[in-house]
Every structure is written in structure tokens, then in C-alpha cells.
Amino acid sequence: MSDHISLVGNVVGELERRTTRDGGPVASFRLAVGERRLDRERNEWVDGHTSFYAISAFGELGANALLSLRKGERVVVTGRLRLREWENETTRGVSADVVADSVGHDLRWGTTRFVRTPRPDTADKGGSDDGSARGTEQMDTERAVVDGWAVPGAETETPAGDDRVRDAVAVGGGAPPVEGPF
């Protein structure tokens, strides 16, 4: 039996790539979940207790997390909580481990772009998971050109004169910052 939990916090450190016995990808990272409240007497924000969780994401979720998440980013994690007791020569303790069911950026603090990964069962057949006849080679080409900017009906070419998109894709940084009033 496991307890389901939803957490919102910051990624602590870089993600670690591991593999299962059968070679499947696993992304491991620590998540800091802090309490913050407004002290009305002093009219300032005060940090409270911070809890740390060890997060493991398996399979495609793990592979996508490795490509998407970076140290310091604010994320939302849902999964199964497992409390693990441990002991070494000098101390004993309990560790809070979470096997993630889903992971995503907290959009309250920034923006992100979604890029669908092709499903393995449709990639071999030359189709895509949306039922179209478009092959994976075309999908990979589109993703390489715009990485995160490809949405249905959108142009697949980098906007003229906007090198930020090309540069962000080249270094794996995703979409460039959005400018303008909102």
C-alpha cells in the first residue's frame, strides 16, 4: 500500500540518470518543499520549515524529466509516497521517497513549452500517435527546427531574425524568454 501525494517545490541539484535492471531510464532528484508565510506584524515574507523528498521517475517520464528539468526550477510532482527507515554506524532516520506518476513545471513562476514525444509503438509503423500518416522522421525534423515552438497550425521555421530560438535549441535551453506586456 502506498499513499498518493502532490508536492510543489524546487529541484535541488542536477538530476541523476540511472537505469533499471532491464535498461529502462530512471531520473532521480531531490525536491525541497518549503513553507513560506506573510508575517503581518513585520509585513514581510518569512521562510518556515523545509522538507526534502527523494523523487524517482521511471520510463518515459524519467527520460522526459532528464531532458526538461534543471536545478532550481519550481515543479509540481504527484506520486506515491514511501517512508524508508535507514540506519548507519552513528544515526538512524526516515527518508521520504516519492515514485513520481507525473512531473511538470509550476507555471506560476515561469513559462514552458510542451513537445510531444513519439510513442514507440507508432514510431516503428511510420505514423504518429495522433493517427496521422506523418512519419517520425518529419516529426524529428520539426522538433529539431523549433524545439517546443511546434504547435498545430504554427509555422515550423524559426522566425526571421530571431536567433534566440536557434541558440536556445542549440544549447538545450528550450524556448527563449517571452517579452512584452501581459
Score class of each variant (00 low, 15 high):
Thr112Ala: 15
Thr122Glu: 11
Thr141Ile: 12
Glu41His: 12
Asp106His: 07
Gly62Arg: 09
Ser95His: 12
Arg30Val: 08
Ala175Pro: 06
Arg37Met: 14
Glu85Arg: 13
Phe58Val: 07
Gly48Leu: 03
Glu35Tyr: 03
Ala100Ser: 03
His4Gln: 15
Gly93Glu: 04
Asn64Trp: 04
Ala123Ile: 11
Ser128Ile: 10
Gly131Ala: 05
Arg166Pro: 00
Arg80Ala: 15
Leu7Pro: 05
Met139Trp: 06
Ser2Pro: 08
Pro181Ile: 02
Gly59Arg: 14
Leu7Cys: 02
Val75Leu: 01
Phe29Asp: 05
Val8Ser: 00
Asp101Thr: 14
Thr91Ser: 14
Val46Pro: 02
Pro159Trp: 01
Arg36Gln: 15
Ala27Lys: 02
Asp129Pro: 00
Gly180Asn: 03
Thr90Ala: 14
Leu107Tyr: 09
Pro181His: 04
Leu69Glu: 06
Asp97Pro: 07
Glu89Ile: 11
Ala168Arg: 08
Gly172Ser: 02
Met1Lys: 13
Gly72Pro: 09
Gly180Gln: 05
Leu31Gly: 04
Val26Asn: 00
Leu38Glu: 04
Asn88Arg: 08
Asp39Pro: 07
Gly23Asn: 00
Glu73Trp: 01
Glu142Pro: 07
Arg18Lys: 08
Asp167Thr: 05
Gly135Asn: 10
Val75Asp: 06
Ser51Val: 05
Ala100Gln: 07
Ala65Asp: 02
Thr111Gly: 11
Gly153Thr: 02
Ala150Ser: 07
Pro177Cys: 00
Asp129Phe: 13
Asp121Thr: 11
Leu81Val: 09
Val103Phe: 08
Thr112Cys: 13
Arg134Leu: 08
Trp149Phe: 07
His105Val: 14
Asp39Tyr: 04
Asp130Asn: 10
Trp45Pro: 08
Arg70Thr: 06
Thr158Leu: 03
Thr50Pro: 02
